[in-house]
């Protein structure tokens, strides 16, 4: 029988192995292991567990996998690294603990990257999301010359100063797992254990859908409809945010989360329109500005809610 120590150091054998180890590791560090947000987003940061929860004074610690969609990155499943649908692993801890770098390095060990035989480096990379009105300072983490994670100390989200500061870790799961597993083409990567009764590769699961979505994203999506949806989401977001805070029974229930859903929708619709090539360079900025305005308004409302307020911490 192998000891748990040996288990941890043994190399993962498949994609889900990498994910499961990260889940186990971050659960052991005390993070709430959340499930993916049930909407289309461009990155794990859009999950309200990061965007909204990095606001306000309440301590927070969460980890989750987030399926992410970047329509312009579609390559019909042919490119070894690029996908229009992929997975990010996201960790967010507020306030950022003093040993966050060590915790992070521990997670690399957990997936089989021993920093004593690899070259792990923290290389300057400042993060900014114009759509979320957010920025932070940190690094991209290099392992043997490959970027394996993004490590950021949030300074501002939705135009609000982050106080306290959240530490955010983002792992590009496919790329990281391919490196750990020694796979050249993402579609060749074993998803479950290769010795399973029914072994499935990443390609078995996603090759077909990557092709289909690439076609739809680039050529087929109905742009008129997408423009309409964008406007609808924008209008609904604004309406929710400006609705009276008290409900029919006089309870104060501001609706930051439903409004933020509409903001996420608008953002994704913009990405689709961008992939369809119907947004010119100058218009791009205007659309990004419109989504940012929504994100900021959602943040403004969220910080007034119990989920954000510091006095709730003391209670």
């Amino acid at each position: 029988m192998t000891s748990p120590q040996d288990d941890r150091m043994a190399k993962p054998v498949c994609f889900q192995d990498v994910i499961l180890r990260l889940q186990t590791y971050w659960a052991a560090q005390g993070c709430a292991v959340l499930q993916p947000y049930d909407m289309e987003v461009g990155a794990g940061t859009f999950h309200p567990a990061t965007t909204l929860r990095s606001l306000g004074a309440r301590p927070w610690a969460a980890a989750y996998v987030q399926p992410s969609r970047r329509p312009t990155d579609g390559r019909y499943g042919e490119n070894p690294n690029r996908l229009q649908h992929y997975y990010q692993y996201q960790v967010i801890i507020k306030p950022s603990p003093p040993n966050l770098q060590e915790l992070y390095l521990g997670s690399l060990k957990a997936i089989g990257l021993d920093p004593m035989i690899h070259d792990v480096r923290f290389v300057e990379d400042d993060w900014e999301s114009p759509t979320l009105g957010a920025w932070g300072l940190g690094w991209e983490v290099w392992c043997d010359g490959m970027e394996v994670s993004q490590f950021t100390y949030f300074q501002q989200v939705g135009g609000h100063d982050c106080k306290p500061v959240s530490g955010e870790l983002t792992y590009g799961l496919e790329r990281l797992a391919m490196y750990v597993l020694g796979i050249e083409h993402v579609m060749d990567m074993p998803f479950n254990a290769p010795d399973s009764p029914i072994p499935l590769s990443y390609g078995d699961i996603f090759r077909q859908s990557e092709r289909e979505y690439s076609r739809w994203n680039f050529d087929q999506a109905d742009t008129k409809m997408l423009f309409d949806h964008f406007r609808d989401a924008e209008a609904e977001c604004t309406r929710i945010l400006t609705a009276a805070e008290a409900d029919g029974a006089g309870r104060r229930i501001p609706m930051a989360h439903p409004a933020y859903d509409q903001c996420i929708k608008a953002s994704h619709l913009f990405n689709l329109l961008d992939a369809r090539g119907v947004i010119s360079v100058t218009e791009r900025q205007a659309y990004i500005g419109r989504v940012r305005a929504l994100a900021k308004a959602c943040a403004d409302l969220f910080v007034t809610t119990d989920a954000a307020r510091a006095d709730e911490v003391a209670a």
Binding site: P95, D126, Y153, K163, P164, V165
Partner: peptide, 15 residues
């Protein structure tokens, strides 16, 4: 460019 970290208010280039 400098930053804050954790719950403090000191600014430095990184923690």
């Amino acid at each position: 460019k400098s930053m804050r970290w954790g719950a403090g208010s000191l600014r430095w280039v990184r923690p």
